Simulated assay, not measured.
Amino acid sequence: MTAIDNIAQANTRYAATFPGPRSRHPRLKLTVITCMDSRLDLFGALGLEVGDAHLIRNAGGIPTDDVLRSLAISQRAMGTSEVVLAHHTECGMAGFDDDAFRAELEAESGQAPTWRVPGFDDVYDDLRRSVETVRTCPWLPNRDHVRGFLFDVATGVLHEVS
C-alpha cells in the first residue's frame, strides 16, 4: 500500500467525524507563515483548531513573492490582521546553495528555473529578515502585529525572536 492509499483511507475515517463547514475567514484573524518541514505540527504546537488561521508553508518559511501574494489575499479578502512567522531548528534551508541547486536543475532539464531558492546561514538572522520583509510589504494593510518565533524540533518549544 502506498502513502497516498494510506491517506485516502485515513480521510474516510476523518470524514466520518468531521464537524461540518466553517467560515473561510479565519476565526483568529491570524496567518502563520512557516516551513514545509514535516516535523512541524502547527495545530498541536500552536494550539490551533481547523478554521482558526491561514497556514502558508514553503521551504524555509521564507516570505517569497508567492507567500506575500497569499498573505495579501489573506489580509485583504479574508480579514486576517496578525502574522506569525515560525522558523525552526535543523532546517534543510540552512546552508542551502541556491546557485548549485539551480545549476543542477538546469543541467538535468535544459531549462533554468524562473524562481530562486534562497537559503540562509543563520536561522535567527533569517527569521528577523523575514519579519522585516512582511512588516515593510506595501501590499499588506496589517503590518503592526507581525512576530517571529523559532520552533525547536527536538523539544517542541517555541521561542520568540525579536
Rank of each mutant, 00 (worst) to 15 (best):
W139K: 11
D41W: 02
R69A: 11
G47W: 00
N6A: 15
V157L: 12
C91I: 00
R22K: 10
N58F: 04
M1Q: 10
Q75S: 08
C35Y: 02
N6I: 13
F101G: 01
V84Y: 15
C91L: 02
V117N: 09
T80H: 04
V134P: 06
L46Q: 09
P21L: 13
R69W: 13
P113F: 08
N6S: 13
S130Q: 07
L42C: 11
T17Q: 11
T12N: 06
R69Y: 12
G95A: 07
A16F: 01
N6F: 14
A154I: 07
V84G: 07
D37C: 06
T155W: 08
M1D: 14
V146N: 01
D41V: 06
P118S: 09
P26N: 06
E132F: 05
S109W: 06
D98C: 07
N142W: 12
S23N: 10
D121M: 10
A100L: 13
I62W: 07
S81M: 12
R39F: 05
S74W: 09
W115R: 09
G92A: 04
V50E: 11
G60I: 00
L158M: 13
I56L: 14
L68P: 09
V134L: 08
T114Q: 14
E106R: 07
T12W: 00
D125T: 11
P26V: 11
L68N: 06
S38G: 15
H25I: 08
V153M: 10
W115L: 12
V146C: 06
G44S: 06
V67S: 01
R76S: 14
L40S: 08
V84D: 11
L140Q: 01
P113I: 09
L140S: 01
P138N: 02
D144W: 00
G61S: 09
Y124D: 15
L48G: 04
E49Q: 11
S81W: 00
T31H: 00
C91S: 01
I73F: 12
R116Y: 06
A45E: 15
A77E: 08
D126W: 09
Y124I: 15
A15C: 08
D66L: 11
L140K: 03
M36D: 04
F18P: 02
A77N: 12
A94V: 15
D144F: 03
R143E: 02
L30N: 09
R129F: 06
C137H: 13
H159Y: 09
G119V: 03
V123C: 03
E108C: 04
L28A: 10
F96Y: 05
T64N: 05
S23H: 01
R27T: 07
Q111E: 12
L40W: 03
R129T: 13
R147S: 13
T34V: 11
R27G: 07
R24P: 05
G60S: 03
V157D: 10
G44I: 09
I7N: 04
G47T: 00
G60F: 00
S109E: 00
A103C: 01
N11M: 08
R143D: 02
R39E: 09
D66S: 14
W115F: 15
V131Q: 07
E90N: 13
L48A: 06
A72D: 06
D37A: 08
P21I: 03
H25R: 15
Y124A: 14
E132G: 07
S162K: 10
T133I: 14
W115C: 08
G60D: 04
P19Y: 02
R102H: 06
L40Q: 14
P141Y: 05
G119R: 05
E106V: 06
A103V: 05
F120N: 08
Q111R: 12
